[in-house]
Simulated scan of single mutants.
Amino acid sequence: MFTPQGPTFRELAVQALSSVEHGYDLLAPKFDHTPFRTPDSVLRSVARALDRIGPFGSGLDLCCGTGAGMDVLRSVCRERVTGVDISAGMLGVARDRARRSGPPVAWVRGDARALPFGPAFDLVVSFGAFGHFLPRELPGLFSQVHSVLRPGGTFAFPIGAPARPGSRDYWTLLGFDAAMRVRNAVWRPPFVMYYRAFRLGDVRRELVRAGFAVALHPLPEFGRRPDGSPRCRMVVATRPD
């Protein structure tokens, strides 16, 4: 799962015993060499899907991390793109790796639950960050995204189908979430990272409550499950005009 350039077990343990913000500050230099980074195949698939419904003016990468999703924005946005993240360490790596061509780029340190912007964006994307928010935080998070979009703006992100009960992935994710709950019960500060808490039904309901019109776009590159449902979708939530 990890390349030789990735973090050691000891480094991961230190990160896991830190807060989310400080943990990612520590992990930032090696984050791109871990399985936690969104795969390029997902980024390319989302970029193709957005290209079909774009182009867009200005874009925001919510919880941008080391900036992998910023390349998606730069491919579909004409004006400017912004990355926001709570971790100064992750933003530092993102600045260093950013491409110099394309629309202007800005990097902002901020909390996704209290975004420091007005309604300035036509597109907001996010990749792999929602496990860091508890289910009760989704209404506030989606309201924040709604508030920074211009009328007619789009909030888009990929979401995978849940693991089949009894499968290896199912037990792996269940075990990881259980370990995180035990860790947070006995150690402070908490490190919120739950892979099974972000469920499509809940997400769709809370997006509608926040004022979005919601559509689902299958990402065909990832195929379909035996029951015919897509293995991965792009959620497209639109702020009405």
Rank of each mutant, 00 (worst) to 15 (best):
A47I: 02
V93P: 14
S87D: 02
R37E: 00
S143L: 10
P158D: 03
F157R: 01
D61G: 13
C232Q: 03
A185Y: 11
E21S: 01
R233T: 10
R80Q: 06
R10A: 14
P7H: 12
P189T: 00
A13N: 03
D40A: 08
R74V: 10
P104H: 13
G54Q: 08
E206P: 02
F142I: 09
L91K: 01
G140K: 04
R209F: 01
A213H: 10
P119N: 06
G23R: 11
A120Y: 05
S58R: 13
M90F: 01
P119S: 09
V236L: 14
S87Y: 03
G102Y: 07
A28C: 02
A213F: 04
S126H: 03
L26F: 05
G92H: 13
V14M: 13
E21A: 05
G140Y: 09
G65D: 12
L115Q: 12
P240K: 12
V42F: 03
F117P: 07
S75V: 02
D96N: 13
F121T: 08
H33C: 05
P151S: 04
C77K: 11
V192M: 01
M90P: 01
L216R: 06
P103Q: 06
L174W: 14
Q15A: 06
P189Y: 04
R52A: 08
L115S: 13
A114W: 05
I159N: 10
F56C: 04
P218V: 00
S41C: 05
S58G: 05
G67S: 07
D169M: 15
P116A: 11
G118F: 12
D96F: 10
D227T: 08
R37W: 12
D51Y: 12
R80I: 00
D169Y: 14
P230T: 00
G54K: 01
A156M: 13
R225W: 01
D96G: 13
R44G: 07
R181E: 14
A197T: 07
V14F: 06
F155I: 00
F31G: 02
Y24K: 03
A49T: 01
E21I: 06
L219I: 01
A178W: 15
R199Q: 15
R209G: 03
R37P: 00
A49C: 05
H146Q: 12
L138M: 11
S75W: 09
P189I: 00
F9D: 15
T238P: 04
S45Q: 02
R78W: 12
T38N: 03
A178I: 11
V14D: 14
E79L: 12
F121G: 03
P165K: 12
S229D: 06
P135A: 08
R80N: 01
M234K: 07
V192L: 02
S101D: 08
F130C: 09
R113T: 15
E79M: 10
R44L: 13
V124I: 09
G228W: 02
L62Q: 11
V208L: 11
G118P: 09
S126A: 09
V42R: 07
A185P: 13
A215V: 07
V124C: 12
P29C: 07
F36T: 08
T34Q: 04
T8C: 10
G223R: 07
P226M: 11
